[in-house]
Design a protein around this nucleic acid. Sequence first.
DNA 1: TTGTTAAGCGGAGGCTGCCTCCGTATCTTC
DNA 2: GAAGATACGGAGGCAGCCTCCGCTTAACAA
Lengths: 218, 218
Amino acid sequence: MIYIAGMDDHTDRTRKPRADAVRNRELVLEAAKVVFNAGGPEASLEAVAKRAGVGIGTLYRHFPTREDLFEAVYRREVEQLSEFAEQLKNAKDPVDALRRWLRSGVEFVATKKGMVAALALAVQSGSELHAFSFDRLTKATGSLLDRAVAAGEMRADISPEDLLRAFFGMCYIHDQPGWQSTALRLLDVFVDGLRVQPVAKPKAHTTKRAKPAAKPKR
Amino acid sequence: MIYIAGMDDHTDRTRKPRADAVRNRELVLEAAKVVFNAGGPEASLEAVAKRAGVGIGTLYRHFPTREDLFEAVYRREVEQLSEFAEQLKNAKDPVDALRRWLRSGVEFVATKKGMVAALALAVQSGSELHAFSFDRLTKATGSLLDRAVAAGEMRADISPEDLLRAFFGMCYIHDQPGWQSTALRLLDVFVDGLRVQPVAKPKAHTTKRAKPAAKPKR
DNA sequence: TTGTTAAGCGGAGGCTGCCTCCGTATCTTC
DNA sequence: GAAGATACGGAGGCAGCCTCCGCTTAACAA
C-alpha cells in the first residue's frame, strides 16, 4: 500500500474505527450519565453496562478505570463551566465576576449529583487522566483571578489551583439539606478574604504567608 | 434481688460485661486505628479483624457499621482537638486564637490519615451516630468564634457548623503532595474573610447574605 | 460480492470484601 | 460446680470488580 502524500482525510493509514465500537461507546456514556447522576459515583459499573445493553467487558475496554468513565461523562459539563468563565471575563467588576463564577459552580454541582465526584477527580490527586478537566478549570479560574489581581483588588498569593480546591472543598458537603446556602455563604466569606485588605490590620498577623503558591509542574 | 439505694457502683442490676468482650473491643479498636491510618478509610474490615485476631463476626457485633468503628477510633482524637480549643479560649487575640485552632486542625489531619474521614463523618450528613464528634467540634469552634464575634472582630453570620464545614472542605484535598501548605493558606484567606471588614467596600456587594445560619435542630 | 483479518464483543469465572447467622465456647452468677 | 446468659468465629451467600479468551462482525481489498 502506497502512502499518498497530501491525502489529509485521515492522515494516518489507519482503519476507520468500527461503527459498533463508536456506537457502544456512546451508549455506555449515556447510561453512565444516568446511573451516576442517580446513584452517585459509587454506582455499580455492571449496572451501567446493563443499562447500556453491552457486556461488562465492552465497558471496560472503552473505559479501563472508573475514573476514565467519570471523566468522559463530565467532560462536557466541565467545559460548559469554563465557558461561563470566559463570558464573565468581560464583566466590569472583576471581583464580582469571580464571585459569580464560583456561585454558578455551586448551582452546577447542585443539578448534577455526580458532578462533585467529577470535580474531586479534577482537583484531587495528580494522576494522569484528569488532566483535561483540571486544565480547563484552572485556566478558567486563573483568567478571572488574574484580572482581579491585576486590578489591584485581590491578593496575589493564591493560585487558581488553590482557589479551585477551596471551591471544591466547600461544595464537598453537598449531601446535606441546606448545603447550597451554606456553600454560597462560605464562598462569599472566602472571596472577601481574597480581597486586598483595605487598611492594615490592627495586629499584624505573623502567620507567614506561604510563598506564592508554587505552580505544579506540568 | 433487692435494689439497694445509694449503691452507686453499677447503678443498675445488670450483669457485669464479659471480660473477653471488653478485651476484644479494645483489640479491634487498636487494630482499626492502625489499619485505617495506613490504608485509609476504605481499608478492609476483614483485615482489621484479622489484625485484631478476632473473627469478623466479633468485629461486626461490636461495631455494626463501618461508621461506628470509625467514630470509635477517632473519638479520642476529636476530643483532643476540642480540648485544644478550650485552652485557646484564654488567648488574648480571639481572631488569632481561632486561626491557630484551625491551623492545628490541619496538623492533626496530617498525622492521622484516617482523620479526614472521621471529620467527614462528623461534619457530613445528619446520621445519628456522629452526634458526639459533631457536638464536640461544634462547641469548640463555637466558643472561639463567639469570642471573636463578641469582640467585634468577626462577622456574626457564620455559624460554627459553617466554619467546621469550611475547615473540613479545605482539608479534603489531603492526598496531594503539598496539601498542607495549601490548606493553611486557604484557611488564612478564609479567616481574613471572616473579619469584620474595616471599611465599607468600594462597591456594595449585593450578593445577599444568607440569614444567619439557621442552627440545625438538635 | 466475497474472502480475509483486525477489531470488538460479551460474559464466565476468579477474586475480594460485605454482612448474617447460628452452633459452639466461655464467662458470670449463684 | 452448675446453669444460663453472653460472646465468639467463621462458613456461606451475595455483590461488585476486573480479566481473559473464544466468538462475532465490520472494514477493506480484490
